[in-house]
Design a protein around this nucleic acid. Structure first.
Lengths: 208, 208
DNA sequence: AATGCATGCTTTGCATGCAAAGGAGGGTGC
DNA sequence: GCACCCTCCTTTGCATGCAAAGCATGCATT
């Protein structure tokens, strides 16, 4: 299905920042650059609109430019959802319903993230960070929460990719990640939830 | 835009239960019954698919039939989000950023809901209940949370419309609603959040 | 009788043509 | 010189035609 290919491609480009927020996309331009007809492009644009990645704007669509307010709201929701997934992940771990390798993978990701951040590789750090949090959401075993978070992340990432990482934040991040993993490992759901929620809020604060 | 009309109409029909879960929808049937061409219908179906209201199934789409597991997950997310919106609503009320009429409206809705439930008007009770909770979400002033909850509600309602209201639940519901409103009125965010989250979980339990 | 295959039909997916809506730009009137 | 209007052009939205993919049905063969 070409429509699906176009959708995924555009989404990739937007999330990767190849299209800047506010940039305008017309059916014709896209269909020419991807060498398909306008029909599948239309479909793709509508799906992206549903995802909140682009916005209809008079003629055509523009890549969604997030206001500070919008970001504030998004982080509030993210905080609530990540508190939920962390809590669920901890409970499932306590119940022995988590693959043993999963937690080890997360710990590896967390360490790798620290290294990569220290090395100043921002792009890779962003990807790893997302993978880390996504790993926890997967561990929670709630596909709806996972999907909602994926949607949120896609939106947020567009506007935060260049505004990240002030000087001393990395250490705090590493510490919070470690405490979060420990709470999960101990099966302490409420604690994991509190840490995850607080972690998201702290991340938001940095983005002023 | 006809595509939009088709989308809204189909969505309405699905949420209202006119199409049963599992029922198959083909582009042709829909385009004939609504007297438009297949193009806008395709667009509408894709959007509904994005909303999780229908599912692609080999040929065509079928109205999403929710499994018990799926419902469990949906309610977990709903609980988290409604805890968030209740807490935000209480904080905003405390800060005086809520229109005075809004809270009164909610109280009116709550009382009306009690009456309607007592009278056994199930359909109306479902609508009022949704409006009540949606009112709180609006009061929270977080459009992302509101939209996420709307999506969840649409999905949930399809599968719960006929399974609602066991004998003694209405009294408990009324009580929980009242306590929730009071917590909001007092500006006690954490309390409101706890009540709302617990309320959603209790509702889920009833649906076994 | 059962199984495997082939054929035909249903249905989707994509491209293109056409009409209409919305803007931009230029021209004219004041 | 400025403002307003008109016209043309860009771009979307919808319909339809055509090709391909999937499925069921029926027939033949074992």
């Amino acid at each position: 299905m070409q429509a699906d290919i176009v959708y995924r491609r555009l989404r990739e480009l937007i999330v990767a920042g190849e299209y800047s927020p506010g940039e305008r996309l017309t059916e014709m331009t896209v269909s020419e650059s991807l060498a398909v007809s306008r029909t599948p492009v239309r479909e793709a644009l509508r799906r992206l609109e549903g995802d909140g990645l682009v916005q209809g704007a008079g003629r055509g669509v523009v890549v969604h430019a997030l206001t500070s307010d919008y970001l504030e709201h998004a982080y509030a929701v993210r905080s609530a959802l990540e508190a939920l997934t962390a809590e669920l992940a901890a409970s499932r771990h306590r119940a022995g319903r988590v693959a043993p390798a999963a937690l080890a993978d997360l710990e590896r990701d967390a360490r790798l993230l620290e290294d990569v951040t220290a090395a100043g590789n921002l792009d890779r750090a962003i990807r790893l960070n997302r993978r880390f949090h996504r790993g926890i959401a997967k561990m929670a075993g709630n596909p709806i929460a996972l999907e909602s978070l994926d949607r949120l992340w896609d939106q947020i990432i567009v506007s935060t990719r260049d505004s990240l990482v002030p000087p001393e934040r990395p250490d705090a991040v590493a510490d919070e990640h470690r405490r979060l993993l420990q709470a999960i490992a101990e099966g302490d759901g409420p604690l994991a939830g509190r840490i995850a929620g607080e972690h998201a809020r702290a991340t938001r604060k940095v983005l002023e």
